[in-house]
């Protein structure tokens, strides 16, 4: 469902049918039910980290790369 949900969320809203919107709502309601039952929802949310973001985090605090000495 997660992939389908992503696809639905990305689709042009003009192309969304009543059933599509019901699927989105049902997905979130199912997640709410899971959380209320003390279980993890079926989809982590929040944007996926970009490669730039990951690299930025990995290299944070490291000295800036540069040529120290030419041989």
């Amino acid at each position: 469902m997660s992939n389908e949900l992503d696809e639905l969320m990305d689709r042009d809203p003009l192309e969304l049918t009543r059933e599509d919107i019901d699927k989105i709502i049902a997905h979130h309601r199912k997640n709410r039910g899971l959380v209320e039952a003390g279980k993890r929802p079926s989809k982590e949310r929040g944007p996926a980290p970009s490669l730039d973001g990951v690299l930025k985090n990995l290299t944070a605090g490291l000295p800036k790369a540069g040529i120290a000495r030419k041989i």
Partner: peptide
Amino acid sequence: ALKSKSALVQTVIWYLD
């Protein structure tokens, strides 16, 4: 990071329910 579009849709639906 928490203020995504998906979180927005979810929060609205959960609030209404």
